[in-house]
Design a protein around this nucleic acid. Sequence first.
DNA 1: ACTTACAAACAATCAAGCCTGTTTTTGAAG
DNA 2: CTTCAAAAACAGGCTTGATTGTTTGTAAGT
Lengths: 217, 217
Amino acid sequence: MGRIPRRRSQKERSAETSSRLMAATIDLLHDRGITRATTPDIARAAGVSRGALTHHFPTRETIITASIANMLHLVNEDMRRFGKAFAESGGSSDEIVDYLWKVMSDRLFYVTMEYLPEARHNDEFKAQLVPVVREFHAGLDAIWTELAARTGADPEHTRNVMNATMCCIRGMIAQTILRQDQDYYEGLLRFWKEQVRQQFPGKAAGTAKKTRKRTAE
Amino acid sequence: MGRIPRRRSQKERSAETSSRLMAATIDLLHDRGITRATTPDIARAAGVSRGALTHHFPTRETIITASIANMLHLVNEDMRRFGKAFAESGGSSDEIVDYLWKVMSDRLFYVTMEYLPEARHNDEFKAQLVPVVREFHAGLDAIWTELAARTGADPEHTRNVMNATMCCIRGMIAQTILRQDQDYYEGLLRFWKEQVRQQFPGKAAGTAKKTRKRTAE
DNA sequence: ACTTACAAACAATCAAGCCTGTTTTTGAAG
DNA sequence: CTTCAAAAACAGGCTTGATTGTTTGTAAGT
């Protein structure tokens, strides 16, 4: 029989609805793009009414910025976990590149490309995102710094290498939209790993006999 | 008194109007973004009526794709010219990086970021752009190949270095939208030039005593 | 009872495509 | 060289459709 769903507190209801709305927003941002992610669509995707949406997020911009902030927080946590695990297990730098590629190309940067143009033309929207992104980048920097400390590499040099890696991956992902060329990306990524490996002369070279792929798929 | 403007042929009128419309389209794509670049705005910016626009370009997509194709052709020509001049004068690889950064960050990649997301969600739009972009990339590849031939470097290696450079620049420009941090970009660019220089061991190292900044600003 | 969460209808806005006129150019006949 | 009808270039209004923010009404929790 239909069990009567336990009486939930307001906080629980509110938090769950918000979460579902934000998740649906990111899904739509990724799947249909920011212009097609309309408030009726978001509400429908989240399985709630548009009224519920407007109750939690008064304007469309509000829910989008909240969703982005939420997404970046989650990604940052995941990255921190990876960084910690990596430092402890002490793998090859290839694994870092593979991990970053995976995380970035699995929605993150596609979603980013949806809102960046809007941020460029909408000052209010931009103002809300700048601190969020700043925190994200600060989180990254902390991970790179810790990585440098663990591997004994120069911190600034490590930051440069990792930031360049991130930028390179961003540029590649941008290209994937209009350039379907698996060989191109694989070749470039292989080349890049080689470069990164040479930047961590001390330890990485030894551990990496090949590329023990575990994270990549 | 008002001189009667010389009687122009249909071809002249048509070509000029089209050009103005396409130029206005790119301007608006850059200045206000693809969603805000409405057909009334484009017509107004070009100084023609909306009727004229619909006469030359039946749909909004048509004028946008045409404008992008036109822009990429112009950029490709400019790059070819630079490549030729560079090969003849034989400068440092730093100059290549500076040039690419300048070209890409002077509207080109910002405009690109406007239409990439749309292409990701609009198959028809994408289908029209794929060949255009393919040609653009082919043009780039030709330039890299010629560069390798002139400097005596390995062609594939050169392509990898230059493609990585392009991707890195793309990623950096994407960041510029939400991360205002001149030092960060300058530092990263300096680091990158260093890397590139090391990839052209034969000639570049000599010419570049320091970094003769001329193009960057 | 009172506040919070949710539902759904409403009004104003605005862009895209279509369609109907008007002007300019063409080219061919007289 | 002039005339004139057809075609191309251009101007601007109209309709439809979709979206956002607002508002009013209802149910669930405190």
